[in-house]
Design a protein around this nucleic acid. Structure first.
Length: 509
RNA sequence: GGUCGGUUCGUCUAGUCCGGUCAGGACGCCAGGUUUUCAUCCUGGUAACACGGGUUCAAAUCCCGUACCGACUACCA
């Protein structure tokens, strides 16, 4: 193995949509690779044929594309270590399993799943736990107990078998985790995990070790749920006589309330996405929300995710992907699980929304307008966006903040009428209409100056008049600066709305 | 049950390795200010070292124990 080359991989199983915890794991791998000038690889771990879900692999690839996370090698782009899909590498694992048998590190076992299940039940009844370990393997149906001739005969007769790892009986394993430091385990407590299944496929444990070695992976950065199997993996590298990669086990993403790791259910329950993209389950037809479809910007999403378990050590919070790559180090990844906070996710999106160009946001807004049956030119929409973007977390919220730029109010908010349409209002607004109709330069600044002067001369209350004015133009007590609004919709439209408003609201007695 | 991991404001976290500033920032929340409304924005406030021992002049920081939480414990990954 070339020791100087940093190579990391993300190795999902195509069993469904990618959970944001998985996205974060991939992100940290990506950032680590970019930070160190290394390579980032996408490998598909589809050794469980029974759990294959159509479309999952495509979903995973599309998710990263959306996030802006790019791979250097992988199932979708190829590379020097092809193939990158384990089902297509099927043939290579058997030989490695047999190599382990030859070296005395593994053995054939013929126990059927039913037999083992029965054993587990039996143990449970006695309040014990059945473990296929160095004790149990001495009295079960395997090559350690059977003679070589019997074993050979069984295999030749076509009996189903698995290959299990033969754990050392009593050995202290000291392991180094980049995030957690030293982890020590006695092999006594380990069980003889299956490496090779009776269906001819390797298990994760064998396949990931073989592939990581063959693909010259230098660092294995994965979720904390893999920490308990790190000893097995270390032992496997040792048994093969290979140098093990460095390991880093990332803390879990926890649910926003209560206990435990974040799950799909939490998203449904609390109304926030758990997946990067929308996903429709091919079997149940059930649809799950995605960040993309819910209006999040990919850069905001990635930024938010990166800060969940990692921090730069200073007080910066807004990072582009490039900035993240520059700042990221594995040392600054925390040890403890992070509770996901949907509120902060929204805040991040707002930050990115405000930072974006008005024209860019207008482009994104136009489809929403079209859906409302409104056609407006980009220039006008850009002006509108400029006025309302600070008030929104998402582009889809623009409509509720700016509908009145595109159409006259159809109804007047009842509460607002009650509060702001007083006895004097009709006459004052009628006067205001007169005033506005005479203005030649209808710019925001100019109308504001003229109206304020008029208010002062007349001794009218600014709040009273302008709120009544707003009520008529907007339909409610909301929206940006009044003079910005009328300047944008124009003099003609302003006067038209005043006419309608006066007629609708009438004179209050 | 067993093994491993974790524990600083409600949440994300800095500080812990190399003991010593009112334990800092952000989100949220609350209050005030700005404003013609709402939002933004500005200012301020709220609020934490899981617990118990020990070592020390001094512990969030080092040691031990306890509690709690989590992950894992499949011919799944």
């Amino acid at each position: 193995m070339n020791q100087n080359k940093i190579r990391v991989r993300f190795a999902p199983s195509p069993t469904g949509p990618l959970h944001i915890g998985g996205v974060r794991t991939a992100l940290y791998n990506y950032l680590f690779a970019r930070n160190s000038g290394g390579k980032f690889i996408l490998r598909i771990e589809d050794t469980d044929q029974t759990r294959f879900v159509p479309g999952a692999e495509e979903y995973i690839i599309e998710s990263f594309k959306w996030c802006g996370i790019e791979f250097d090698e992988g199932v979708h782009i190829g590379g020097p270590f092809e193939p990158y899909r384990q089902s297509e590498r099927k043939d290579i694992y058997k030989a490695y399993a047999e190599q382990l048998i030859a070296s005395g590190n593994a053995y054939y076992a013929f126990d059927t799943p039913e037999e083992l299940d029965a054993l587990r039940l039996q143990y449970e009844a006695e309040k014990k736990t059945f473990v296929y370990n160095h004790e149990a393997r001495k009295f079960l149906k395997n090559a350690l107990v059977l003679s070589d001739a019997e074993t050979k005969k069984l295999i030749e007769s076509g009996a189903a078998y698995v290959i299990r790892f033969k754990n050392p009986e009593d050995e202290i394993i000291r392991m180094e985790d980049l995030i957690r430091g030293e982890v020590v385990v006695n092999t006594q407590v380990l069980d003889d995990k299956i490496l090779f299944k009776s269906d001819g496929m390797p298990t994760y444990h064998l396949a990931n070790v073989v592939d990581d070695h063959l693909m010259e992976i230098s660092h294995v950065i994965r979720g904390e749920e893999w920490l308990p199997s790190m000893p097995l993996h270390i032992l496997l590298y040792k048994a093969f006589g290979w140098e093990a990669p460095k390991f880093a086990h990332l803390p879990l993403l926890l649910k926003p309330d209560g206990k435990g790791k974040l799950s799909k259910r939490d998203g449904d329950r609390m109304g926030f996405p758990v997946f990067p993209l929308q996903w429709q389950d091919p079997k149940s037809g059930e649809t799950s929300h995605g960040y993309r479809e819910d209006g999040y910007f990919p850069d905001a999403f990635v930024n938010m995710l990166a800060l969940l378990g990692w921090n730069p050590g200073d007080e910066r919070e807004i990072f582009s992907l490039e900035e993240l790559a520059k700042a990221f180090t594995i040392e600054r990844v925390g040890k403890s699980g992070s509770r996901f906070d949907p509120e902060k996710a929204k805040w991040f999106n707002h930050q990115y929304l405000v930072k974006k160009e008005d024209a860019e946001l207008a482009q994104l807004y136009i489809p929403f307008l079209i859906e409302k049956g409104i056609s407006a030119d980009l220039d006008y929409v850009t002006q509108v966006v400029k006025l309302v973007k600070e008030r929104a977390h998402f582009v889809y919220e623009f409509w509720e903040q700016s509908d009145f730029f595109f159409r006259a109010p159809e109804v007047f908010d009842e509460q607002a009428v009650k509060k702001r349409w007083k006895q004097d209002s009709y006459d004052q607004i009628a006067e205001l209409k007169e005033l506005l109709s005479g203005i030649e330069n209808f710019s925001s600044e100019n109308t504001e100056e003229i109206v304020k002067k008029w208010l002062e001369e007349k001794g009218y209350g600014m709040g009273a008049v302008l709120n009544a004015f707003r009520l008529i133009i907007v339909g409610g007590l909301r929206g940006p600066h009044m003079f910005d609004i009328i300047s944008l919709i124009g003099q003609e439209e302003t006067l038209r709305r005043l006419e309608i408003g006066l007629h609708e609201l009438g004179k209050k007695e």
